[in-house]
Write a protein that binds this DNA or RNA. Structure first.
Lengths: 225, 225
DNA sequence: GCCTCTAAACTTGTATGCTAGTTTAAGATG
DNA sequence: CATCTTAAACTAGCATACAAGTTTAGAGGC
């Protein structure tokens, strides 16, 4: 497992949560593998309590399966859950871009364009981590513009299923077309064209569905069904 | 606070969570009031640990505000949050009824109708608690029919803001029209009419927005802004 | 070799004590 | 009487010990 730096004033629980999530998404904690509160707390330099609290939270979204008095395992990729999480994102993000097309001011559009510029830079320089962060931030900005930040926060909880697959796609698929999607959306937002933007979002989010077969071939042992 | 019965094989954390949530929704734990891990654990017959785990979960959806090393309080009603939660429900439930109109079999429709019959019964006999449970179950059934149970579970987390207001409406508004809404939806689902069903759902969920002024007058001290 | 039983070594769940930080209130001082 | 100081009584965060249940490994009998 890859141990990240603990942020200043970050409490143990949030730290544990951040590190564990990151390692699940990046497959350092492999789907199906057993995890131990004791091991994790030792690695993180914490006691069991904050680690346990983090694991409970992750079990709520079924990314970790806690079997009482037995063990805890990282959930295998359940494509029904991935689909549910994709459905949720799709429905919510499409509704949000509708609002964004109404509500976005020029400064909002400029912030989106700035994000795209950076995405292009990190794409040219092959920096998947930064690209990943910017992608997240792009979607988060859309929710902020529509004043739906809490919805974004909740959506992100279940999105970890989607994210794990999305992360695999970054390495197993040649041309993600992601940056281009984002740019097209930004410009159609600038034109205040909700129908077009919605359409683009729909295509954007469904790429991961299309890639499923490829991913599954690359990592067959990680799938549940 | 009203202490509920502990279910067989229910662990302490889930028990605490269930009781605390119930008391928040029913205003036994009043918005703005301070809560103490010690008091709660004494009342529930548990130690601080499981109670604390429950409080952490509730703080994630901002229904409880934990001020580190200071205190924890039941959040005041924040209408922006209520609106976000209503927005989320609205968007997701409308998308789900679309699917339901495609996917529902005759036995599903029959289950919905049976639920309506019971709703009518408990309406006539004035049993708000049972009515409340049936209302929840009606919406849950829709998500089950569309195979989106996990989405429902997540939506319910934030819905507690919405639920708290919804519960106040049950007592401060004369004719909720809720049962009639449900019946109309069921029949338009039976007719496989997604446009009509969507429309009904939209009206149904927006009732609580309309009622906001009434509720606010009845309980002004509970509101944040 | 192959069952069966048992005990030890795990697991998570819960209780409790300790730490660090905040509030409160009493007491001293002007 | 007003104000500052200080100590005690709270809070939540974290560490640790113990309880309850499961798995595993090995001894013993056949």
């Amino acid at each position: 497992m890859k141990i990240l730096e603990r942020l200043p004033r970050e409490n143990g629980r949030d730290y544990a949560l951040r590190v564990i999530k990151d390692n699940i998404i990046h497959l350092n904690l492999e789907p199906g593998s057993q995890i131990s509160e004791n091991e994790l707390s030792a690695e993180l330099g914490l006691s069991r309590t904050p680690v346990r609290e983090a694991l409970i939270e992750l079990s709520k979204v079924r990314i970790i399966e806690i079997q009482p008095q037995k063990r805890s395992v990282v959930a295998l990729i359940d494509y029904d859950l991935v689909e549910e999480s994709r459905f949720m994102r799709n429905v919510l993000e499409c509704a949000v871009v509708d609002l964004v097309c109404e509500m976005a001011g020029p400064e909002d559009v400029e912030r989106l364009r700035e994000n795209i510029r950076l995405q292009k830079f990190y794409w040219d320089n092959f920096n998947p981590d930064q690209l990943w962060t910017l992608d997240d931030h792009f979607h988060q900005m859309l929710f902020e513009i529509a004043h739906k930040s809490q919805v974004f926060a909740l959506m992100q909880n279940i999105s970890i299923h989607f994210d794990r697959v999305r992360n695999m796609a970054l390495f197993s698929v040649k041309d993600p077309k992601i940056v281009q999607d984002h740019e097209n959306m930004t410009e159609s937002i600038a034109c205040r064209d909700p129908v077009k933007t919605r359409e683009l979002m729909e295509v954007h989010l469904s790429r991961y569905r299309i890639d499923a077969v490829v991913i599954r071939k690359a990592y067959p042992q990680y799938f549940k069904n």
